Amino acid sequence: MPHSKGETRAEPWEYSLHIPHDPRSVTVCRRTLRLILTLHGLIRLADVAELLAAELISNAVRHTKGPATLRLCWRDGILRIGAWDASPEPPPYELAVAPDSEAGRGLVLVRACADDWGWHPQRQGGDFGKYVWCDLGAA
């Protein structure tokens, strides 16, 4: 399979980072994501992927009370970024947010920057929560 100079072959991979309920976890997730993408030759996706992951994880930390998990999955030229949290409630998103608002724009950014996104209830271990995800294509 042909690939660009400096890019690893497109073998599927997946990582999960379990994080505590702590606002500092957002920074840990961003830096870990950048390292993973760098090691897999996908640094060109890092800036947008970091923004998307930070929005998903910050929502999980801000709007729930339990732990969270960042999941990164690469398959068929698509990077899926997902965040599991311990609340089964739908993700907090507004269809219209005031331009000068400093809150409520997270999923608006996700919708604008990702190729696709969604959420569904999901059990992780013994905890029932939700999984919010977005896809970012390599092209």
Rank of each mutant, 00 (worst) to 15 (best):
M1C: 14
S4W: 06
K5F: 11
E14M: 02
L17D: 12
L17S: 04
I19G: 12
I19R: 00
P20H: 03
D22W: 00
D22P: 09
P23L: 10
P23W: 06
S25F: 00
V26W: 07
T27M: 09
R30C: 13
R30N: 06
R30L: 02
R31H: 03
L33G: 03
R34C: 10
R34I: 08
L39D: 05
L39Y: 04
L39Q: 13
L42D: 05
I43N: 07
I43E: 15
V48N: 13
A49E: 00
A49Y: 06
A49K: 01
E50W: 02
E55W: 00
I57P: 06
I57W: 01
S58Q: 09
N59R: 01
V61T: 08
V61R: 00
H63R: 03
T64W: 01
G66Y: 05
P67R: 15
A68V: 12
R71I: 13
G77D: 05
L79V: 00
R80C: 05
G82E: 15
G82D: 01
A83F: 00
A86V: 14
S87V: 02
S87R: 05
P88M: 08
E94T: 04
E94K: 14
E94Y: 08
P99S: 05
S101E: 04
G104E: 01
G104N: 10
R105T: 09
G106T: 10
L107T: 07
L107Y: 12
L109E: 01
V110E: 06
V110M: 12
A112S: 11
D115R: 11
D116P: 04
G118E: 13
H120C: 06
Q124G: 05
G125T: 14
G125F: 14
F128E: 15
V132H: 04
D135W: 06
A138F: 09
A139R: 11
